[in-house]
Design a protein around this nucleic acid. Structure first.
Length: 428
RNA sequence: GGAGAGAUGGCAGAGUGGUCGAAUGCACCGGUCUUGAAAACCGGCAUGGGUUUAUAGCCCAUCUAGGGUUCAAAUCCCUAUCUCUCCGCCA
């Protein structure tokens, strides 16, 4: 959520910056609601003050043993006026809140203006895609050939966009998550967390999935209008970031850095037709997530650091990738600035997203009231929140199967992963 | 699943209809004392919002949440959520 005061005072400016990301802010409606709110809120509070004063004097008169009947008569119609003013104000505030909660974050000034992914800017590349002297297979062919990827089974059990992994490939999938968690906790200073996979709607509002993107999630019953049903997490960003919802951290505790390995569930409504084949786009996938909660002045550096942590995983696994700075039009709802890491996939002859690292500044923190106490002023201030994949486990598996495949159908295990696979150097 | 108890500020914990945004303690901040620190003592210290140049002042709201009773609710009533205890069940 944007700062309501800023939104109010800099309406035109805000609208312009939001237009860069393809979001049209309804200035006219907002201005009208705001004007009404201002007068109504003042008059309501004035009525409230009057009633409070009179009620108080009734109490005092009673205490002195005076007759309070005339005072009671006076206060009667005041109550009616107050009641109707309150009702109208509440509706108005709800309307304004709905707009505020559905408005995306402002892009940082150094984010390139653009329409879609074609306008993203490449920042750097690491590694060189291998040249193959044999006919390459995609990850499905590699995995199915060694009996480790079974889509027939998952279709029987559940349906499309799920997978069953077996034997060495299942083990590699598990090993990847272990490897990533160990790296982030032992080398990068993150606190490992085990978190619920079902969350309530308050958490989802906090990180920005609700109220706007409910259809991307799987909900449990009863998922009614009030959203009292629990929902499966689309990313561990939701539980990890919400750890600090309605909390005030000590400044000395900062930065807070959490990591977790969780499954992620996405209904991907409307995305049918994209990546139908294979492990790239699933309703359920595992991910190791990194979340940082930092002081505002530290969030620029934190985004670079956090992205570096994700890059480190790819480097240790020796997977070629490139780092992209997303343009205004391609960023997520909550992001002020986002780097995507894209890993090389030989079968597709292109780089594909494997990590997305974002600084949301105070956008999520304001929704969550996630704060810290400023040591100098002794006042609570909003934190800045950042999140990034480190990495998507399924897609990492895909990248290894494809980049490390051999002409005989086997796959070499990256050196960094071998200790997590009982020393195996090759799977076949 | 059954029975009972509870939810108050950063934390602990008083408060059962009016002068209560709320005693007290801890924590925290400032000061006195001290070579320095500790202790002791003195003072300060909730959050959100409105108005405003203002983190000044004034005003409104907030004692889990949502309804209700009342001129007036932390306090009375209803509902929900959560927590704890006991029983049952269970990995």
């Amino acid at each position: 959520m944007l700062d309501p005061k800023y939104l109010r005072s800099e309406l035109e400016e805000t609208a312009q910056r939001l237009a860069q990301r393809g979001y049209e802010l309804d200035i006219a409606t907002l201005a009208t609601l705001e004007e009404r709110r201002k007068t109504l809120q003042s008059s309501t509070q004035e009525l409230q003050a009057q009633r409070n004063a009179r009620s108080k004097s009734i109490g005092q008169a009673k205490g002195r043993g005076e007759d309070i009947a005339p005072l009671l008569a006076q206060v009667g119609e005041l109550g009616d006026q107050l009641e109707s003013a309150k009702v109208e104000l509440a509706q108005l505030l709800t309307d304004i809140d709905n707009i505020a909660m559905s408005t995306p974050n402002l892009p940082d000034s150094d984010v390139p203006v653009g329409k879609d992914e074609d306008d993203n800017v490449e920042i750097s590349r690491w590694g060189t895609p291998r040249t193959f002297d044999f006919e390459i297979k995609d990850h499905c062919e590699v995995g199915e050939a060694m009996g480790g990827i079974d889509f027939a089974a998952s279709v029987k059990l559940t349906g499309s966009r799920f997978v069953v992994l077996k034997s060495k490939i299942a083990r590699m999938h598990r090993a990847l998550a272990q490897f990533m968690l160990d790296l982030h906790t032992e080398q990068h200073g993150y606190i490992e967390a085990y978190v619920p996979y079902l969350v309530n709607s308050e958490s989802l509002r906090g990180t920005g999935q609700l109220p706007k993107f409910g259809e991307d999630l799987f909900h449990t019953n009863p998922a009614n209008e009030e959203g009292t049903g629990l929902s499966l997490i689309p990313t561990a960003e939701v539980p990890l970031t919400n750890l600090m919802r309605d909390e005030i951290a000590d400044e000395a505790q900062l930065p807070l850095k959490f990591t977790a390995h969780t499954p992620c569930f996405r209904s991907e409504a409307g995305s049918y037709g994209r990546d139908i084949k294979g492990l790239i786009r699933q309703h359920q996938f595992d991910k190791v997530e990194m979340v940082q909660l930092v002081k505002p002045q530290d969030s620029d550096n934190a985004l670079e650091e956090l992205t570096g942590h994700a890059e480190k995983v790819l480097q240790l696994l020796e997977l070629p990738y490139r780092k992209m700075l997303l343009c205004t039009g391609d960023m997520g709802f909550t992001a002020a600035k986002t780097y995507d890491l894209e890993v090389w996939l030989p079968s597709q002859d292109c780089y594909r997203e494997i990590s997305s690292c974002s600084n949301t500044r105070d956008f999520q923190a304001r929704r969550m009231q996630a704060r810290f106490r400023n040591k100098e002023t002794n006042k609570p201030e909003l934190l800045h929140t950042l999140n990034g994949s480190g990495l998507a486990v399924g897609r990492t598996l895909v990248a290894i199967l494809e980049n490390n495949q051999q002409s005989d159908g086997s796959v070499t295990v990256p050196a960094a992963l071998r200790q997590y696979m009982g020393g195996l150097a090759v799977i076949s």
